[in-house]
Design a protein around this nucleic acid. Structure first.
Lengths: 231, 231
DNA sequence: CACTATAGAGACATCGGACGTTTGCTGCGT
DNA sequence: ACGCAGCAAACGTCCGATGTCTCTATAGTG
């Protein structure tokens, strides 16, 4: 196990030290193997790991390159990790959102431009129009929150919250919302957030975001409880 | 590229669906290869990726097992991702900490036990005693924050903040603190957090944590600026 | 001269088999 | 009942061969 892991560590440290800057091309696999003292198989495993972490970009027939190392790439793995968490830890995830998302929304209220607000208004309209299509609701809900957070200009923050709001988690909440006839109320909560943002009111944005996350958390509890009862 | 990635997706979905619960043992590599229609090499790459994500635990001479899927394992990858971020995005990371850590510290004030407070006091004492050893300071600083956050009982939150406070990032801040003769002031900030927690004062804990993160951010800026000037 | 089609070289994708090393278990002997 | 040796199973590593894709340089054409 040491050889391949060593190779992973070596490549990573070459990137961290700046020896392999973003966009740089790695030597061909056979050469890399000789250089690190292991077989091509081992190198391939190492490269595959770093590729899955979006650190390397392997282009067939061409070569292997270091990615841009942008937060949006490197933090993408958070999403798949969250998808694999067991049900009983999803409430922990929701608590993190409860702490972070209101603060982020408050920050967005300070930094959002008029164009951002218009875009947000459009999404809200789309959401209202799709009030009976669960699939679309989830899609617009995702777009709404992503848009709000991304106006902070903090890509790391955006990627982090995107990852914490995985598709499966969102789908579960909305299933509860719809079955509980609370979809309309939730759309209103989005509207409240929108109004707070439009008035550039940081505290109000924060409060409305907290209320919204709290509602989501409550419905997630309901869904999880129902599932436990089934099993 | 599709074959190996398909294998990764298949294994992941088997875990997500509950077909492979935590602790379950996977079939031997040759059998797994046949089952998924690719060679053993491909399976090994897939398994290696999931092992690096702490989803699988490969025990040589024994077999391959699904891990506990605990947040502390799955979110471990966040730390290595943060270590690879470019310098100009570290300020984004710091901003996230600025939003999240005060809230988390405030929550800790509500949930912390007396035993937790004693442990924290001990770490603070250690930190004071090590005021001239940069290595130890970093170590105790890490322990301090980890202990505070972990008293919230939220393992996901703890792992997340641990990941955001990577060793390299911390080391840089402390380098700035020490060279700027601000180590003492920073230790006092820890003391202020400790006092707020001991009085179970949520808002005060929140405020003192914010001030502390703000100080760290300022010194990080200094260090980054100095580096830019050098280059 | 500009543009296009094509052939070749380089690089990754996948496979199959072989051998070493480690681990866990079984059965023997005491 | 206990301990030790030996066996079988499984992962770790390596090697070589073949398929497939990309990029590029080259030759051909209008």
């Amino acid at each position: 196990m040491a050889l391949t892991d060593d190779a992973i560590a070596k490549i990573r440290s070459m990137i961290q030290s700046g020896e392999l800057p973003p966009g740089a091309r790695l030597p061909p696999e056979p050469q890399l193997a000789a250089q690190m003292g292991l077989s091509r198989s081992g190198v391939r495993e190492a490269v595959k790991v770093l590729e899955s972490a979006r650190v390397l970009d392997v282009r067939r027939g061409d070569g292997t390159y270091v990615t841009s190392l942008a937060p949006r790439l490197l933090l993408q793995g958070l999403g798949v990790a969250v998808e694999l968490l067991r049900d009983d830890t999803l409430l922990e995830v929701m608590e993190v959102r409860r702490l972070l998302e209101p603060m982020a929304t408050g920050l967005a209220a300070l930094r959002m431009t008029d164009a951002d607000l218009d875009e947000l208004g459009q999404i809200l309209e789309d959401m209202r129009a799709a009030a009976d299509d669960a699939e679309k609701l989830i899609q617009f809900d995702t777009a709404f929150h992503h848009t709000v957070i991304s106006t902070t200009g903090n890509e790391t923050l955006t990627s982090l919250l995107d990852g914490l709001s995985g598709r499966t988690l969102r789908a579960r909440v909305w299933r509860g919302l719809i079955e509980g006839n609370a979809a309309h109320k939730t759309i209103d909560e989005h509207h409240a957030i929108y109004l707070a943002l439009r008035s550039r009111d940081q505290l109000l944005a924060q409060a409305s975001a907290l209320i919204h996350v709290n509602t989501s958390e409550a419905w997630l509890r309901t869904v999880l409880a129902a599932k436990t009862a089934d099993g």
